[in-house]
Design a protein around this nucleic acid. Structure first.
Lengths: 216, 216, 216, 216
DNA sequence: CATGAATGAGCCTTCATTCAT
DNA sequence: TATGAATGAAGGCTCATTCAT
């Protein structure tokens, strides 16, 4: 049970009023994210979300119009940050493209392990068909950006003569796919057959790099 | 003319719409498969499943104990056949491993396009966490078998000196991952950004093969 | 499971046609009686009744219009016979009234133990309020007759100077009540606290006889 | 669907019918008690119970887990108080045992007429076989206590030389039976043949007392 | 006569949503 | 802001009843 005893305190010990106004929804979004990812949209009960956030059911409606609004907010919440960090990498990079791509892989796997990204990914795949809007949003803000990113790396490698000249740079998804599958695996089959993420990511980088690099 | 119903019978004879005498359970499973994949388990209404199969709600219970039993049956229905065809390929193969793997890729993509496999895959990923039993079943009967298959191909390649000696044959998932991602893409983002499955699968085979083969 | 294999036999091995026509409903009534007494009217499933009689659900409708009709038939079935035997006793009796009443008690308890009577009694008490018709029927054919019977015995005892002159012969129910309670006990609390029916019926006869007889 | 109070209502703010601020569960139990006794457990519709209590169906589930829980609560509600009052009688009694027993009879009949006790008794007898738990509870808290009570009175009478020495004090049920039967009669056959409760209870006390007392 | 597949109405139960406090 | 009691609309499941075979 989270702390709920600072409510009646006349002087909030921590946050200013302006912050509090955003603190509550954030808690609800966080709680919603977890519930939705565990149960799916339809099977998630707002009562459980509320309990997880330490409030009662009705309180949710102070911040969100309805269940779907909360769902959308939850999905949107953690999407953007995941991309930016990788994007900046590329712009300023000076070294050879192999190490750049390996760096990108490292970043991706680090994020996969953290959990947030995995959860959202699974939710989007699971509920996407019923929420085209979310699908669109996720595609535009995550998938599409990530694809473009990989593609630019591929183009860079080809342009600099590092990658094979006959590479189809239009298919960056192929290059990233093993990481995506790893993320899905960790939210599904991992309990049945744990994935050695270390060895897996090494094999991923190894095979793909080998497949991309120009033969000497 | 029947001197029996001379009374107040004002209603038409109301002939039952009799379908082809196909197996009922199979029709229901088929209908369930589609509904579940569209809406997810919780949001699927048995009434809709029944309607899709041309019967009424109650009829489902003549063949399945409850909603979950139907769900399980739907998932199980199309799992087994998908594997066998590929397995046989390997046992009798005589040619070089590259062409063997390319053949395997071809088979995989052909199945992905057909739809059935894709649907099940998405359902399992989406609802898996709430149905450990199904996850287990699918893992044991599909994922696991497929992984082992790819691994044997990799081992064959290495053993015959065709693939790189330092290849980590313990990570066959990396090799197959792009195909899995393609399958998922087609059930989610394809409407937003259609995947050129031809080019994609070519790039997949191209990059991976290049990554696996020994350098001359 | 009763025999169901004589159905397709072209030559019925046992009964003539006329008998069979009554044999089936009797089986259903018997089965219904048991089910109704165990579960009550509403909770009894015709499927269970049918199974108990070795037929399928639909067959019941060949003999009874609906569930209620079967229920009525079941209740009626074993009512009449229970009374007659006692009635005849009285008419021809020559001995003293004490032994006559003791004989009646014996008969009543013998029947209580057999079960049929008990079951019906419980059903009538349980479902009576919703089936006034049955209540009426049972009252007219069983309760009322039994009451009149006891009353006549009481009157006989008073008339012959054997029973107390100030006895209220209008309340025969008081005299029979312990037997009724015994019957109910055996269908309800007996598992929790078994009734020593021997000692109980002796105490019943003892106390009541003592209460009825004239003081010397 | 949503707000409907701004529309065609000419006036009337449509205030919720707010009952007296009585305890909700108690109202529901009261309503349930009546419905169950009229229709039996299976045939009782929670919608009717709710309507009787002035709420909607769903409200019941705020206080009770399910139909059965409500049923149990209804049975329990009126059991305990019914016993205590009689128990106290015995402990402090100083007078002769005949008047003590007559007093006990009076109390019992007074309660029978009030209705609550009768209703519960009938419910327990009717639904008992399907609710062993309730049967047990009722037996332990009512039947058993009442039996012990009567027995103690009988023992007192015998010990003081007031009742016959050869009395079987192990069968107190025989002594109380006529009252039980009266209670059942009033919930079943009374409409068909009204019971003169005055005369009946007098006959009961008269015969039983006569049967118990030592002959001079 | 009997079957068994199918129907359709009904009820229990859940839960998103509302609202007076 | 937050609560919690209450609502009302579904949806899962059951089962009496029907009917073609």
């Amino acid at each position: 049970m989270p702390d709920r005893n600072f409510n009646e305190a006349s002087h909030a010990p921590k946050r200013r009023r302006r912050r509090r106004k955003e603190a509550r929804p954030a808690e609800l979004i966080e709680a919603g994210l977890l519930e939705f990812s565990e149960k799916g949209f339809a099977a998630t009960r707002l009562e459980d979300v509320a309990a997880r956030a330490g409030v009662v059911k009705g309180t949710i409606y102070l911040y969100f119009d309805n269940k779907e609004a909360l769902f959308r907010a939850a999905v949107r919440s953690n999407v953007l940050p995941a991309i930016d960090s990788v994007t900046h990498l590329l712009d300023a990079y000076q070294d050879d493209t192999e190490s750049l791509l390996r760096l990108a892989f490292q970043t991706i796997y680090a994020r996969l392990i953290s959990g947030e990204v995995r959860i959202i990914l699974r939710i989007v795949l699971a509920e996407g068909p019923r929420f085209p809007e979310i699908l669109e949003f996720y595609h535009a803000n995550t998938i599409s950006v990530a694809k473009r990113l990989i593609r630019r790396i591929l183009e860079r490698g080809v342009a600099r003569g590092e990658f094979r000249a006959d590479l189809d740079v239009e298919q960056p998804l192929v290059v990233a796919a093993p990481a995506i599958v790893a993320g899905l695996w960790m939210t599904t089959f991992d309990r049945l057959e744990p994935l050695d993420i270390e060895a897996y990511s090494r094999a991923h980088a190894d095979i793909i790099m080998n497949g991309l690099l120009r033969r000497p």
